[in-house]
Protein backbone atom coordinates (compact mmCIF):
# COMPACT_ATOMS: atom_id res chain seq x y z
CA UNK A 1 0.00 0.00 0.00
CA UNK A 2 2.82 2.35 0.93
CA UNK A 3 4.74 1.49 -2.23
CA UNK A 4 1.66 2.23 -4.34
CA UNK A 5 1.23 5.55 -2.60
CA UNK A 6 4.89 6.35 -3.21
CA UNK A 7 4.59 5.45 -6.90
CA UNK A 8 1.54 7.67 -7.29
CA UNK A 9 3.37 10.50 -5.54
CA UNK A 10 6.37 9.88 -7.73
CA UNK A 11 4.31 10.32 -10.86
CA UNK A 12 2.32 13.28 -9.57
CA UNK A 13 3.03 16.52 -11.32
CA UNK A 14 3.53 19.81 -9.59
CA UNK A 15 0.28 21.57 -8.85
CA UNK A 16 -1.50 23.79 -11.36
CA UNK A 17 -1.04 26.89 -9.17
CA UNK A 18 2.73 26.91 -9.59
CA UNK A 19 2.40 26.42 -13.36
CA UNK A 20 0.11 29.47 -13.43
CA UNK A 21 2.60 31.47 -11.36
CA UNK A 22 5.43 30.48 -13.69
CA UNK A 23 3.43 31.30 -16.81
CA UNK A 24 2.52 34.73 -15.39
CA UNK A 25 6.17 35.45 -14.60
CA UNK A 26 7.23 34.27 -18.05
CA UNK A 27 4.70 36.63 -19.62
CA UNK A 28 6.26 39.55 -17.75
CA UNK A 29 9.70 38.49 -18.97
CA UNK A 30 8.32 38.19 -22.50
CA UNK A 31 7.42 41.88 -22.14
CA UNK A 32 11.08 42.53 -21.25
CA UNK A 33 12.19 40.72 -24.44
CA UNK A 34 9.75 42.77 -26.55
CA UNK A 35 10.80 46.06 -24.95
CA UNK A 36 14.46 45.19 -25.47
CA UNK A 37 13.84 44.30 -29.11
CA UNK A 38 11.86 47.51 -29.61
CA UNK A 39 14.46 49.74 -27.97
CA UNK A 40 17.19 47.97 -29.98
CA UNK A 41 15.42 48.75 -33.23
CA UNK A 42 14.88 52.39 -32.22
CA UNK A 43 18.49 52.95 -31.02
CA UNK A 44 20.62 50.51 -33.07
CA UNK A 45 24.00 52.25 -32.68
CA UNK A 46 23.54 52.83 -28.97
CA UNK A 47 22.65 49.17 -28.45
CA UNK A 48 25.55 47.96 -30.60
CA UNK A 49 27.97 50.13 -28.60
CA UNK A 50 26.47 48.99 -25.33
CA UNK A 51 26.63 45.34 -26.30
CA UNK A 52 30.30 45.75 -27.21
CA UNK A 53 31.06 46.82 -23.63
CA UNK A 54 29.56 43.63 -22.21
CA UNK A 55 31.67 40.63 -21.31
CA UNK A 56 30.36 37.67 -23.33
CA UNK A 57 32.58 35.30 -21.36
CA UNK A 58 30.84 36.22 -18.10
CA UNK A 59 27.43 36.00 -19.74
CA UNK A 60 28.26 32.69 -21.39
CA UNK A 61 29.68 31.28 -18.17
CA UNK A 62 26.48 32.25 -16.37
CA UNK A 63 24.43 30.50 -19.06
CA UNK A 64 26.45 27.30 -18.71
CA UNK A 65 26.27 27.47 -14.90
CA UNK A 66 22.50 27.82 -14.93
CA UNK A 67 22.05 25.01 -17.48
CA UNK A 68 24.16 22.71 -15.31
CA UNK A 69 22.20 23.80 -12.24
CA UNK A 70 18.97 22.85 -14.02
CA UNK A 71 20.39 19.37 -14.58
CA UNK A 72 21.27 19.13 -10.88
CA UNK A 73 17.78 20.34 -9.96
CA UNK A 74 16.16 17.74 -12.21
CA UNK A 75 18.25 15.04 -10.54
CA UNK A 76 17.34 16.39 -7.10
CA UNK A 77 13.64 16.14 -7.97
CA UNK A 78 14.12 12.59 -9.29
CA UNK A 79 15.85 11.64 -6.03
CA UNK A 80 13.07 13.27 -4.00
CA UNK A 81 10.43 11.25 -5.85
CA UNK A 82 12.25 8.07 -4.78
CA UNK A 83 12.74 9.44 -1.24
CA UNK A 84 16.51 9.08 -1.72
CA UNK A 85 17.42 11.73 0.85
CA UNK A 86 21.20 11.43 0.42
CA UNK A 87 21.11 11.96 -3.36
CA UNK A 88 18.53 14.69 -2.99
CA UNK A 89 20.72 16.58 -0.50
CA UNK A 90 23.77 16.19 -2.74
CA UNK A 91 22.04 17.61 -5.82
CA UNK A 92 20.25 20.44 -4.00
CA UNK A 93 23.58 21.55 -2.59
CA UNK A 94 25.11 21.51 -6.08
CA UNK A 95 22.18 23.54 -7.42
CA UNK A 96 22.64 26.11 -4.66
CA UNK A 97 26.37 26.24 -5.39
CA UNK A 98 25.68 26.96 -9.05
CA UNK A 99 23.21 29.68 -8.10
CA UNK A 100 25.77 31.32 -5.82
CA UNK A 101 28.40 31.17 -8.58
CA UNK A 102 25.94 32.91 -10.89
CA UNK A 103 25.50 35.70 -8.36
CA UNK A 104 29.24 36.11 -7.89
CA UNK A 105 29.82 36.48 -11.63
CA UNK A 106 26.89 38.90 -11.86
CA UNK A 107 28.33 40.96 -9.02
CA UNK A 108 31.70 41.15 -10.77
CA UNK A 109 30.02 42.15 -14.04
CA UNK A 110 27.88 44.84 -12.44
CA UNK A 111 30.74 46.30 -10.45
CA UNK A 112 32.83 46.43 -13.64
CA UNK A 113 30.11 48.33 -15.45
CA UNK A 114 29.51 50.69 -12.52
CA UNK A 115 33.25 51.34 -12.28
CA UNK A 116 33.25 52.26 -15.97
CA UNK A 117 30.56 54.83 -15.19
CA UNK A 118 27.51 53.05 -16.61
CA UNK A 119 24.39 52.80 -14.47
CA UNK A 120 20.67 52.08 -14.70
CA UNK A 121 19.82 55.49 -16.16
CA UNK A 122 22.86 56.01 -18.44
CA UNK A 123 20.89 55.40 -21.62
CA UNK A 124 18.19 53.04 -22.92
CA UNK A 125 20.61 50.14 -23.42
CA UNK A 126 21.98 50.28 -19.87
CA UNK A 127 18.51 50.87 -18.45
CA UNK A 128 17.31 47.66 -20.12
CA UNK A 129 20.54 45.77 -19.32
CA UNK A 130 20.61 46.59 -15.60
CA UNK A 131 16.84 46.44 -15.06
CA UNK A 132 16.15 43.17 -16.89
CA UNK A 133 19.22 41.26 -15.74
CA UNK A 134 18.74 42.76 -12.26
CA UNK A 135 15.15 41.57 -12.05
CA UNK A 136 16.30 38.16 -13.25
CA UNK A 137 18.96 38.21 -10.54
CA UNK A 138 16.22 38.94 -7.99
CA UNK A 139 14.50 35.77 -9.19
CA UNK A 140 17.76 33.83 -8.72
CA UNK A 141 18.07 35.16 -5.16
CA UNK A 142 14.47 34.19 -4.35
CA UNK A 143 15.15 30.77 -5.87
CA UNK A 144 18.24 30.30 -3.70
CA UNK A 145 16.26 31.22 -0.57
CA UNK A 146 13.59 28.68 -1.45
CA UNK A 147 16.26 26.04 -2.23
CA UNK A 148 17.88 26.76 1.13
CA UNK A 149 14.52 26.13 2.78
CA UNK A 150 14.06 22.93 0.73
CA UNK A 151 17.49 21.73 1.86
CA UNK A 152 16.14 21.52 5.42
CA UNK A 153 13.83 18.66 4.41
CA UNK A 154 16.84 16.32 4.52
CA UNK A 155 16.50 16.36 8.32
CA UNK A 156 12.95 15.03 8.11
CA UNK A 157 13.78 11.50 6.88
CA UNK A 158 10.61 9.90 8.30
CA UNK A 159 8.16 12.22 6.58
CA UNK A 160 10.36 13.15 3.60
CA UNK A 161 7.75 12.13 1.02
CA UNK A 162 5.35 14.77 2.36
CA UNK A 163 7.71 17.42 1.02
CA UNK A 164 7.85 16.07 -2.54
CA UNK A 165 5.26 18.51 -3.88
CA UNK A 166 7.20 21.51 -2.53
CA UNK A 167 10.37 20.15 -4.13
CA UNK A 168 8.63 19.63 -7.47
CA UNK A 169 7.32 23.21 -7.35
CA UNK A 170 10.77 24.53 -6.50
CA UNK A 171 12.23 22.56 -9.41
CA UNK A 172 9.79 24.13 -11.82
CA UNK A 173 10.62 27.60 -10.56
CA UNK A 174 14.35 27.01 -10.90
CA UNK A 175 14.00 25.73 -14.48
CA UNK A 176 12.01 28.88 -15.28
CA UNK A 177 14.86 31.02 -13.93
CA UNK A 178 17.25 29.11 -16.18
CA UNK A 179 15.21 29.34 -19.38
CA UNK A 180 14.60 33.06 -18.92
CA UNK A 181 18.35 33.66 -18.66
CA UNK A 182 18.90 31.67 -21.87
CA UNK A 183 16.77 34.17 -23.79
CA UNK A 184 18.08 37.24 -21.93
CA UNK A 185 21.68 36.21 -22.59
CA UNK A 186 20.99 35.63 -26.28
CA UNK A 187 19.21 38.95 -26.75
CA UNK A 188 21.45 41.17 -24.66
CA UNK A 189 24.90 39.67 -25.25
CA UNK A 190 24.76 37.82 -28.58
CA UNK A 191 22.15 39.07 -31.03
CA UNK A 192 23.79 41.66 -33.31
Amino acid sequence: MNQQATTIQAQASAETGIWAFILADMCIFALYFFIFAWDKSVHPEQFAQGQATLNITFGGANTIILLISSCFMAKAVQAARLSDVARYTHYIRLTILCGCLFLVIKAVEYSDKLAEGYHVASNEFYRDYFAFTGLHMLHVIIGLLVLGYALQFRKDKQAFSTHTLFIENTGLYWHMVDLLWVVLFTFIYLVP
Partner: peptide
Protein backbone atom coordinates in the same frame (compact mmCIF):
# COMPACT_ATOMS: atom_id res chain seq x y z
CA UNK B 1 7.54 35.14 -27.35
CA UNK B 2 9.75 33.84 -30.17
CA UNK B 3 7.63 35.23 -32.98
CA UNK B 4 7.01 38.66 -31.53
CA UNK B 5 10.63 39.05 -30.39
CA UNK B 6 11.90 38.25 -33.88
CA UNK B 7 9.30 40.52 -35.51
CA UNK B 8 10.25 43.43 -33.25
CA UNK B 9 13.96 42.74 -33.79
Amino acid sequence: ACGISIWMY
